[in-house]
Amino acid sequence: MTQHDWAQDLAPWIRLEQIPGVGPETARKLLNTFGLPENIFSASFSALQKVVSERIAQALLAPPSDEASALIDKTLTWAEQPGNRVLTLADADYPKTLLDIPDPPLILYAKGRIDLLQNRSLAVVGSRNATTQGVLNAEKFSEVLSQAGLTIISGMALGIDTAAHQGSLRGAGSTVAVIGTGADIVYPARNRTLAHQIAAEACIISEYALGTPAIASNFPRRNRIISGLARGVLVIEAAAQSGSLITARMAAEQGREVFAIPGSIHSPLSKGCHLLIKQGAKLVESAQDVLEEIQHHDVPLRPTPAPSPAAKAPAASPILVAMGFDPVAPDVLATRCEIDIAAIHAQLLTLELDGLIEMLPGGMVRRLATS
Score class of each variant (00 low, 15 high):
176 V>N: 03
188 P>Q: 10
350 T>G: 11
371 S>M: 03
165 H>I: 05
316 A>T: 02
92 A>K: 14
28 R>E: 06
344 I>E: 01
245 L>Q: 05
363 G>I: 04
360 L>K: 01
38 E>G: 05
357 I>N: 00
266 H>Y: 12
77 T>V: 14
146 S>E: 03
189 A>S: 14
76 L>Y: 11
84 N>I: 08
193 T>C: 03
367 R>D: 01
74 K>C: 10
287 A>C: 04
321 V>E: 05
319 I>V: 07
279 Q>V: 09
330 P>R: 05
302 R>H: 12
341 I>C: 14
22 V>H: 02
29 K>V: 06
128 R>P: 05
17 E>D: 14
349 L>I: 15
266 H>E: 15
139 E>R: 13
49 Q>I: 08
29 K>T: 08
174 S>E: 00
230 A>F: 04
305 P>E: 05
180 G>V: 11
86 V>K: 05
320 L>D: 01
256 R>W: 01
118 Q>A: 15
237 E>F: 11
180 G>T: 08
30 L>M: 10
32 N>R: 14
59 A>G: 15
118 Q>P: 03
251 A>N: 01
219 F>Y: 03
144 V>L: 15
351 L>Q: 06
366 R>G: 01
162 T>Q: 15
216 A>C: 00
346 A>N: 10
302 R>C: 02
223 N>F: 00
238 A>D: 00
131 T>E: 00
162 T>M: 13
69 S>Q: 12
282 K>S: 14
285 E>Y: 15
363 G>V: 09
248 A>M: 09
323 M>G: 12
320 L>V: 13
307 P>L: 10
318 P>D: 11
287 A>I: 02
221 R>N: 03
46 S>I: 06
212 T>H: 09
31 L>A: 06
200 A>P: 02
57 A>P: 09
179 I>K: 04
158 L>R: 12
166 Q>P: 09
25 E>A: 13
367 R>W: 00
326 D>T: 13
185 I>N: 02
164 A>K: 02
286 S>V: 12
67 E>P: 06
79 A>G: 09
188 P>A: 08
352 E>C: 11
142 S>E: 10
193 T>E: 03
184 D>K: 13
312 K>Y: 04
297 H>R: 12
69 S>P: 11
211 G>K: 00
26 T>I: 13
274 H>Y: 09
161 D>Y: 04
101 I>R: 07
244 S>W: 00
16 L>E: 03
222 R>L: 08
151 T>Q: 08
134 G>V: 02
302 R>S: 07
103 D>T: 13
52 V>C: 07
341 I>W: 03
238 A>S: 08
183 A>L: 09
160 I>F: 07
254 Q>V: 13
304 T>Q: 07
138 A>Y: 04
14 I>V: 10
128 R>N: 07
9 D>Y: 06
35 G>Q: 03
127 S>H: 09
276 L>G: 02
99 L>F: 13
64 P>K: 11
281 A>N: 01
30 L>V: 12
225 I>L: 01
310 A>N: 06
265 I>F: 15
17 E>I: 14
241 Q>F: 02
326 D>N: 10
332 V>Y: 03
151 T>W: 05
204 I>D: 00
54 E>I: 14
79 A>P: 06
326 D>P: 05
112 G>I: 02
137 N>E: 09
170 R>V: 04
288 Q>P: 12
228 G>A: 08
45 F>I: 10
109 Y>K: 14
310 A>R: 13
106 L>R: 03
72 I>H: 00
76 L>R: 13
192 R>Q: 10
